[in-house]
Amino acid sequence: MASVLVDSAAFAVLDMQALDEAGFDAGLASAGDELAVVFFWGRDCFNCEIAEKAMLSKPDAIRSLGLKWFHSNVYAHRELSRRFMLHGVPTWFFFHWGKRLGRVTGWHGLAQFETAVKAAREKIGAAQKKL
């Protein structure tokens, strides 16, 4: 069976910054007030490849979500998979000023991803109202 490699084209198309254990928190901080999303993936992950191909098929729709994108190969950076208790990839975590707002596990289509982005933004709005 041929090895399945994650298509790094999505990283370039969506301007995803790579994160490792050492730079994770600083990377998130660089997002400032933007809603940040971290795409956790793994080499030889068939479902990660499917997710990337789906995202690449609608790059304008993905970009229109207004996210600051990051990515991390959890097989290369196992401490991150432990830190976030990942049991499978692909997984996306949403952050605002370093605070975790939600997650998506598996690619279930753009509509489901958009719903998760909306929920994360609602959490930001609710937190700001409390201030």
Rank of each mutant, 00 (worst) to 15 (best):
K68E: 04
V6L: 13
H108F: 09
D33E: 12
A127V: 02
A31F: 00
E21R: 04
A9S: 11
F84K: 07
W69T: 02
E34A: 15
Y75W: 12
E114A: 13
T91G: 04
G27C: 10
K118N: 08
K118F: 08
F95Y: 06
H87Q: 15
S64K: 15
R100Q: 13
S8I: 12
S8E: 15
K130W: 01
F84P: 03
W41S: 07
H96T: 05
P59K: 02
A127F: 06
W97R: 15
F93D: 00
H108V: 02
L86C: 01
F95M: 05
L19Q: 01
L80I: 06
I50G: 01
G66H: 08
R43V: 09
P90N: 07
E122L: 14
A61P: 02
A22E: 08
L56S: 06
A76R: 15
V13I: 15
D7I: 08
L101I: 06
S64T: 09
G106M: 02
E49S: 15
I124L: 09
F46S: 12
G102K: 09
A9C: 10
M1T: 15
I62S: 03
N47Y: 13
S30F: 04
G42R: 03
F46D: 08
R121E: 07
F46T: 08
A61L: 14
L35V: 13
H87F: 13
G125M: 04
K99T: 14
A12L: 14
E34K: 11
V104K: 02
A126F: 03
M1H: 07
V4E: 12
L65I: 10
A10F: 06
A26V: 08
A54R: 12
H96M: 07
A31I: 00
K123A: 14
A22G: 11
S64L: 08
A119F: 06
F93K: 05
V6P: 01
E122T: 12
